[in-house]
Nucleic acid binder design. Structure first.
Lengths: 197, 197
DNA sequence: TGACAAAGCGCACGATCGTTCGTATCGTTA
DNA sequence: TAACGATACGAACGATCGTGCGCTTTGTCA
């Protein structure tokens, strides 16, 4: 990794930490420069514009998510075990990356009504996320772990809901029982999608 | 309503519109002054600080939510009908108020890791929301519409998840079928909570 | 090791930020 | 209508915003 790439990675590290606690709108060149020990202009040169910086931060978050959630889940057996691995990884991927809230959700909420490159990047991430999740569900159906007539998109929709409710309960309310509630909701989802006995 | 109260209400109208599309961090004195035709200092005098303005905007959103969702739902018969009314009102309360996204969710995500008055106000709203929702569920249990041994808090958790997944699907993905997905998920929740036949 | 490109800094710019203050105009009530 | 408080404005402040430019330092490779 060249010097430039190294610095760029360090900047994005700081950017993710910042965005996860205070949102992407709080990502300013000045504060980020101070946080990384760079000069404003030096930092700026790595991205060319603030919007590019925000896009890069979203993409960095997506990359982290892939490393922390997707790739490890591939080691689980296909079918239900893999879906469970995805779910569990999803619950704590932010902590495991030293982040506060989920930067992806923050970006989604902040930019869902603001057209531009950032919104496009967020959309791309969630599109891919739903695809991968859908594929995992279909594999589970193929394995006979889930009902053959299961509404896959609905299952993905429901699973996203559980995650969002978890983030809400854990971050805003700081509830300890959030994980337990999320797991219970998830298991009920799985049970409802189980093949007829 | 005195002149001052009138102006203040107009400012908060504009603030909610702004916050619902671009987030609370985008609420600046300058843009809001231009939007309302006031001078910066004239607008500022109504709140005393930017943070107070943000708090007032959160409380205005909560008031709108009460008017648009809570109060109408009280007209429905207690029990399941009222819970359904709450759910349906919740789905479209932002549209009915001419807003883009849900300002309350935006505030929750933006401030969940930032201590201060704004976070406190958001927390108070969601606390009350959960209380009211929980009471409605208990009434439904009393009416025999839902299982007596239902985990009320879990039901509220699950319902919140459905709403968040709906917002995500509708606002970020702009999916037409988001409402249908949300209703399906909600009905499954109700079915799982139904009394043993 | 010398040369060339990559990386970073310092300084400056116009704009906007939140906030303060003195002054003018308005609304309300006696 | 006179008077007085409520409401709004204009101008200014120091700070910070994103961005551009020229220069120096550093890393990299022939």
């Amino acid at each position: 990794m060249s010097k430039g790439e190294e610095t760029r990675a360090a900047i994005l590290d700081a950017a993710l930490a910042q965005a996860s606690t205070a949102g992407f709108e709080s990502l300013t060149i000045g504060t980020l420069a101070e946080r990384t020990g760079l000069s404003k202009s030096g930092l700026f040169a790595h991205f060319g514009s603030r919007e590019e910086l925000q896009v890069a931060a979203v993409e960095a978050a997506a990359a982290r998510f892939t490393e922390t959630v997707f790739l490890p889940a591939l080691k689980a057996r296909r079918g239900l075990p893999r879906i469970r691995a995805l779910f569990e990884g999803w619950l704590d991927w932010t902590e495991r990356n030293g982040l506060a809230g989920c930067p992806m959700q923050a970006a989604a909420v902040e930019f869902d009504d603001r057209p531009g490159q950032v919104r496009d990047a967020v959309l791309a991430h969630y599109k891919r996320l739903e695809q991968e999740l859908g594929r995992a569900v279909e594999l589970a159906i193929g394995q006979g772990h889930l009902r053959a007539d299961l509404d896959v998109e609905q299952f993905v929709f429901d699973m996203l809901g559980v995650i969002f409710a978890y983030y809400h309960s854990a971050r805003l309310f700081r509830r300890e029982e959030a994980v337990a509630r999320a797991r219970k909701a998830f298991e009920r989802l799985i049970a409802a999608a189980a093949p007829a006995a």
